[in-house]
Amino acid sequence: MQERTPLETKIEVGKLSVWYGSEPALRGVTFDVASKTTTALIGEGGSGKSTLMRALNRMHDLNPEARVQGSIKIDGAEILGAGVDTARLRRNVGMVFARPTMLPTTIGDNVMFGLAAQGVRDERSMREAAERALRRAGLWEQMADKLDAPASPLPEDTQQRLSIARALAVDPDVLLFDDPTAMLDPIAALSIEDVIARLRRDHTIIIATNDLQQAARLADITIYMANGEIVESGDTPLLFNKPGDVRTEAFLAGRNPRGAVS
């Protein structure tokens, strides 16, 4: 595999707009993400964070009402055009959702699902990939002898870590976390954060979160979004300590950002 410098651009988003029916959810969003950095998307509910995340691996295709305009390039290749192999794209751009949903099968099959869908049939290499993924998600010690047990009865934080392992098993370059600790208690949320922190040096990570502390702890770059637009973006310590826009300042201070516009 080609060596990349740490600041090589991984994702380029240009004038991206998304509509659900006639309702705009994103309005001409433009930003770049450097390779192997962690970017946090923060903003109020409905600001377009999840819509942006879902556009990055074409999950909006599942919504027949979604309409997309603009450009998203990953490693220089446009992903929004027709003829893109979306299955391959999604293996390269893995996604972990707010609520962990286990496939109705065993723990092992959940982790190996992406590989099986890819056409891998060799049981041994699948087991090895599953072990690697579970180790990286900090679950191997706990799950090594339970791979044939059903996944659904696991506690929610373990399910979320299993979701991360499931996404890691197909070896993605980019990982999208859509508010991954929203359903968890603070202790469980910290354990998920630990996992994400360990993954930062090997993957380009984008995390949408409502937890500002989490964004401050994890992200190199933070993007503040409001009303489907990027209000401000920059190095996380700088944005949190010296926001350049009154709306960002208001949001970070817990005030209504709309009231700050005057």
């Binding site: 999604r90 893995g94 949903t101 699902f113 499931r166």
Partner: peptide, 21 residues
């Protein structure tokens, strides 16, 4: 819907999702 979403995000083709999930 959630199962389909999760399986799709893992790179599974539509018919694979229908048949295997």
């Amino acid at each position: 819907a959630k199962l389909r979403e999760v399986a799709t995000a893992l790179g599974a083709p539509p018919m694979y999702i229908v048949i295997s999930v």
